[in-house]
Amino acid sequence: MTALVTGASRGLGAEIARRLARDGHPVAVNYLPDRADAERVAAGIVAAGGVAAAFRADVTDPAAVTSLVAAVQQRFGPVAVLVANATGPQPAVPALELTWQDHLNQLEFFVKSPTLLMRAVAPGMRALGGGRIIHIGSDLPERAEPGMSAYSAAKAAQASLTRTRARELGPDGITVNIVAPGWIPVERHAAVDVAHVEAYRRDVPLGRMGTPAEVADVVAFLASDQSRFVTGERITVNGGHTIG
């Protein structure tokens, strides 16, 4: 079952791509600016005995998404597993400085892009008799982090879309779920102050930070036949950080 992972040149996306490859999926490693990183991820998968290739595309652009899915299908066959992981800059903007454009910048990645991707892969999934659509969300809507209202609103919209699309696509055998990580430090967090990390960790009931592999494990479950009767669900992966 071919898997397409967007934004997979580094961070969570790269780990998800590697995990799905270990489960036997041919993996399309999507990237936009980081060609060398994406090719390194794909080459690592191949070196480990898996099947993968890097595919460049801006997944917020309709024509680019259409071309991406066509290229993946030509190389590996229809996409049976879609992981919508790609994201953009996530600046903190105080509420009184927030503009509509700030909202649109986040909606591009968490509403527009998943919609374009869904429409592009759904016909192939229907032909296969089913498929898996997995969104990578966030626990920030519950945390109400100051300065992150545009990002949080877009992530909340993404979760709502997941539930509605699960109902609509269920008759075609397509499940739609969302994995909502807490703060999982990856490469782009290398410069974050250690004291900030420690303050966050103290609020996690399990007493530690999560890892990209722990997010990838949940994605792998949702991509597998073991989750065949699970749809419309939001699975939070944050060590209990948002327990009420």
Rank of each mutant, 00 (worst) to 15 (best):
P141S: 04
S227I: 12
V237Y: 06
P171N: 05
H189C: 09
R56F: 01
G244T: 06
A43H: 12
A157G: 15
L128N: 06
G77F: 07
P141F: 06
T236C: 10
Y200H: 09
L98C: 02
P146H: 08
H189G: 04
T60R: 09
M209D: 09
N85I: 03
E142M: 05
G244S: 11
A38Q: 04
I184Q: 05
K112L: 15
L4M: 08
A53V: 02
L161G: 12
V83I: 14
A70I: 01
A159R: 15
T175H: 10
A21Q: 02
G182Y: 04
D23W: 11
H196E: 14
F55W: 12
V176Q: 11
T2V: 15
V81A: 09
Q226E: 10
A86E: 06
M209I: 12
R56A: 14
L206G: 01
E233K: 14
T2I: 04
M125A: 03
D102Y: 02
S9F: 14
G131W: 02
A3K: 00
G77P: 04
S224F: 10
W100C: 00
N105K: 08
A28T: 01
T231E: 12
A144V: 09
T231A: 07
A36V: 14
G239T: 04
G24L: 04
D23F: 06
I243Q: 13
N238T: 09
E198A: 12
I243L: 15
